[in-house]
């Protein structure tokens, strides 16, 4: 673990998507779960952020101007192997996108667009579940929200 990772106690997520609307929606969802969310509109800018910050979770779109999302994820896999990689795309049924994403970029999860209610929260719970001690605060926060948001 690097020192910067030890210093920042917030779970950091990077969202790469060419739709600003998606940035805002993910910022809301993940922000409420105690995450710090960085956003980039294309692969090159996103990889810059990945290089600079210590990012725990990368959520990446497939079709974007410039680099394709799967190529971004493959580069991310070698650039920052400890960052969990997730593909968020409307092309979930397209094997030309999905197969290289799973076998090549070794993504942790494939999330469809539009994403189902609760999908992002479940994703966060699962990735944090892999390092429960390191991210105990985030886990508490999610538990807290689960309790408060639960229908009466």
């Amino acid at each position: 673990m690097s020192t910067s990772q030890q210093r920042s106690n917030r779970y950091q997520v990077l969202c790469i998507d060419d739709e600003p609307g998606v940035h805002q929606a993910l910022k809301r969802e993940l922000g409420r779960l105690g995450c710090r969310v960085h956003c980039a509109e294309n692969g090159a800018d996103g990889l810059d952020i990945l290089n600079r910050e210590s990012i725990q979770l990368l959520i990446c779109d497939a079709t974007m101007p410039g680099m394709h999302g799967v190529d971004v994820l493959m580069t991310a896999a070698s650039l920052s192997p400890n960052t969990t990689r997730v593909l968020l795309t409307a092309h979930c049924a397209n094997p030309e996108v999905v197969v290289p994403a799973i076998n090549g970029a070794r993504i942790f999860r494939l999330i469809p667009k539009p994403w189902p209610q609760g999908a992002i929260r479940q994703l966060l719970m699962d990735v944090i579940g892999m390092h429960p001690r390191k991210w105990s605060k985030q886990k508490d926060r999610i538990q807290e929200r689960l309790v408060t948001d639960a229908p009466d």
Partner: peptide, 25 residues
């Protein structure tokens, strides 16, 4: 076109869920 629609539908649904949480709070 479906892809074009899926993007806004994605973030609008997400926003509505968040709004539901806001309202509860």
């Amino acid at each position: 076109v479906a892809h074009e629609v899926n993007n806004p539908v994605g973030y609008v649904s997400s926003n509505l869920n968040t709004l539901g949480e806001y309202v509860a709070d």
